[in-house]
Design a protein around this nucleic acid. Sequence first.
DNA 1: ACTTATTGTAATAATTTGTTACAATAATAA
DNA 2: TTATTATTGTAACAAATTATTACAATAAGT
Lengths: 241, 241
Amino acid sequence: MTQEKKESETNPAGSGYLPGLAIDAVIFGFHDHQLKVLLMEYKRSKIFALPGGFIRNDEDLNKAAHRVVSERTGLQNIYLEQFYVFGDFGRSDPRPMKSIMTAIGLKHDDTHWLLQRFVSVGYYALVDFTKVTPMPDKIFDGCAWYPLGEIPDLMQDHALIIKKALESLQADLDRKLVAFNLMPEEFTMNELQTVYETILDRKLLRPAFQRKILSLGLLERVAKKWTGGAHKAPYLYKFIS
Amino acid sequence: MTQEKKESETNPAGSGYLPGLAIDAVIFGFHDHQLKVLLMEYKRSKIFALPGGFIRNDEDLNKAAHRVVSERTGLQNIYLEQFYVFGDFGRSDPRPMKSIMTAIGLKHDDTHWLLQRFVSVGYYALVDFTKVTPMPDKIFDGCAWYPLGEIPDLMQDHALIIKKALESLQADLDRKLVAFNLMPEEFTMNELQTVYETILDRKLLRPAFQRKILSLGLLERVAKKWTGGAHKAPYLYKFIS
DNA sequence: ACTTATTGTAATAATTTGTTACAATAATAA
DNA sequence: TTATTATTGTAACAAATTATTACAATAAGT
């Protein structure tokens, strides 16, 4: 099965996939007190890009997005949110892709489907950093986490896509309950607060935060966590419902 | 110019337009104490649909959406918001379109581009009802307003698209300042409150609403309005910024 | 003038959010 | 063992926001 599909991803006409339509995924993880995103790299030419993919002729768009994110993270059942469609005429600069295709020895002329105009549906994903195994694909031989403050130059409009994804995440933060998807199974209140503060890019007051979060009734106290620090041990919480 | 474009919209291959990608617009207006949407009707077979269109090869997606909405309303500079992409495999039932094409004598077989799978980008528009001149298109010979409570059966997943559009509008209502786009130049506080109540589908308290809206500092008092009613005359306001 | 309906806003109550304060630890050092 | 230190959990209070009640100010009609 995968053989055939991968074939069609590199054939010149792109048969088997919806033409002109792509998915770009901004996969957020939290680690080391930072928000990070998963980026693909074509190492030879140091070209960076968001994880992306195409939609099969018989595949739901949202299913395709889940597939793309699963293929890069190794995870199933990921929290995914459509946030914007990037459809400007000028967004598809074919040059970086062209130089990659030349470098990997993929035969192509200017009519190769990967070099045409693409409209791209932007999704953001929230994942438990500790569970992810970054996986390269056919075209990009690197796949790794980059802190939001240290994003390298990206292909096409991918920097804008990340910016819009972050803005959407910030807006969704209290309307939905998205932040929990970034946490491991068990976490302290302080860790959760740090995630909120990092996403919103501002400090929150500890007592107010704790009161607000606990009042949602979504957290269950698991046990105390001995951190080894010279102070009272915090509770561990886990998400219920 | 328009001649050529209209030609390409009905030719069997759909040349000149991005393949497989469409725009559906939920155009909201407010009139007679009701939220209404603009619907297209093919009168012979009583088939109803949302106003929609396609994206030209050299056209920005958002520009295309503005064009689509302008063509149906006669208005320029419309408030438009992308809200969701509808991309399920099963959403494109070709039968209604087929029967219309037969009825209008458009030659086609099953490979005609209008009968293929489409992914559709959903936009909602907010317009001043009193300024709109509903305009039919090549395929649908009717274009008229329908109150949200009296929407007829619609093609494909267009009922779902309206539902999602309304949910997005509700969510955007206080984060952005969208409601003003539904108002005429000058309006009373009561009229504005009715719009809010209709969108949110719940009653609001008059003093709280007035205080909140005025505290935004976006409204200017114009003059009193003599309604002819046996009571104090309300102020008229207009939107400043 | 008196009545009625509705407006604009003041006054008060309830709720939510922001801030300060402090007792309860877990480790380390005296 | 007993301070000392850092951090946690939460109470207590303050400020701000939002909800509710109340009422004077009209614009007609009676």
